[in-house]
C-alpha cells in the first residue's frame, strides 16, 4: 500500500512538473501572414542589417521518432519482433507531432514499456559481445550474478547511457537516484536490490539501469 501511494504520488508529480516545466511558446504550426513584396518599391537591402534573435523551443520525440531514436542512441542493431510489435501496438500513445502539450502519463507509460523492450534487446546484443565492443555495458560481467555488480560498474553503465542518450554526463543527484534505485534504500534494508548468482538476474539488472535512463524526459526530448 505504501509503495502504491508512492507510485501514485510520483505519477502526480510527473504530471505537475510536466505542466509547469515546459515552455509552450511558439505553438507548432502557427505562422504569420504570407505576404511578399514583389514590386519595385521593395527594399531588400534591409536583410543585411537583420539581427538574428535566437529562440529556443521544446519538443518531445513523436511517434515516428521514438523507437528510431532509442535505436540510434543505444547503438542497437538487432531489434526483436516483440519490440517492433510493442511499438506498433503503442504507437497511438506516443506524441503525434512532438508538442509539449502532448506529454502525459499514458505517453510515459508507453515509452517506459518500449524502453524496457529496447534495453532487453540491447542487453541480449551486448552480452554476446566482448567488453571492448560494447557501447553501454562494457563494465558488466554477464557470466556472473548481480551480486557481483558494484557501484563502479553501475556508474559506468550510467555514464555510458547518459552520454549516449542524454548527450551529457549524469549529475551527482542523478547518479545518487540511480544508485538508490539499483542498490535499494538502506532505510528499507535494501530489500529490493538485485542479488544472487543468477545470470538472468544480471541481465534484468542491466535492463533496469538502461530502461530507467532511456525512458526519461532527457532521452525523449527533441
Amino acid at each position: 500500500m505504501k509503495l502504491l501511494k508512492l507510485t501514485l504520488l510520483l505519477i502526480s508529480m510527473m504530471g505537475l512538473t510536466a505542466c509547469g516545466f515546459f515552455d509552450n511558446q511558439n505553438k507548432l504550426g502557427s505562422g504569420s501572414d504570407e505576404v511578399f513584396c514583389t514590386d519595385a518599391s521593395c527594399d531588400t537591402t534591409g536583410l543585411s542589417s537583420y539581427e538574428a534573435v535566437p529562440v529556443e523551443t521544446f519538443a518531445v520525440l513523436n511517434q515516428n521518432q521514438v523507437l528510431k531514436s532509442m535505436i540510434s542512441c543505444t547503438g542497437l542493431t538487432n531489434v526483436d519482433n516483440a519490440t517492433r510489435n510493442l511499438y506498433e501496438g503503442s504507437k497511438n500513445s506516443f506524441s503525434l507531432e512532438g508538442e509539449a502539450e502532448s506529454v502525459g502519463a499514458p505517453m510515459w507509460m508507453a515509452i517506459t514499456s518500449l524502453a524496457g523492450e529496447v534495453c532487453d534487446d540491447l542487453v541480449a546484443q551486448e552480452a554476446g559481445q566482448s567488453a571492448d565492443q560494447r557501447r553501454i555495458f562494457s563494465a558488466i560481467d554477464f557470466s556472473q550474478g548481480p551480486a557481483n555488480i558494484n557501484a563502479l560498474q553501475v556508474a559506468s553503465v550510467t555514464a555510458n547511457m547518459a552520454r549516449s542518450c542524454w548527450g551529457r554526463d549524469a549529475s551527482s543527484k542523478e547518479r545518487e537516484i540511480i544508485n538508490t534505485a539499483f542498490f535499494g534504500d538502506p532505510a528499507d534494508n535494501n530489500d529490493d536490490t538485485f542479488s544472487g548468482n543468477n545470470t538472468q538476474e544480471t541481465r534484468r539488472a542491466a535492463t533496469f539501469l538502461c530502461a530507467g535512463i532511456l525512458a526519461s524526459l532527457s532521452a525523449n526530448q527533441m
Partner: peptide, 17 residues
C-alpha cells in the same frame, strides 16, 4: 516502476553537463 518514474520526474529538470 517507482524508480523509473522517480527518474522521469527528477532527472528531467536537473541537468548537469
Amino acid at each position: 516502476f517507482a524508480s523509473l518514474l522517480a527518474i522521469f520526474s527528477m532527472i528531467g529538470f536537473s541537468p548537469a553537463s
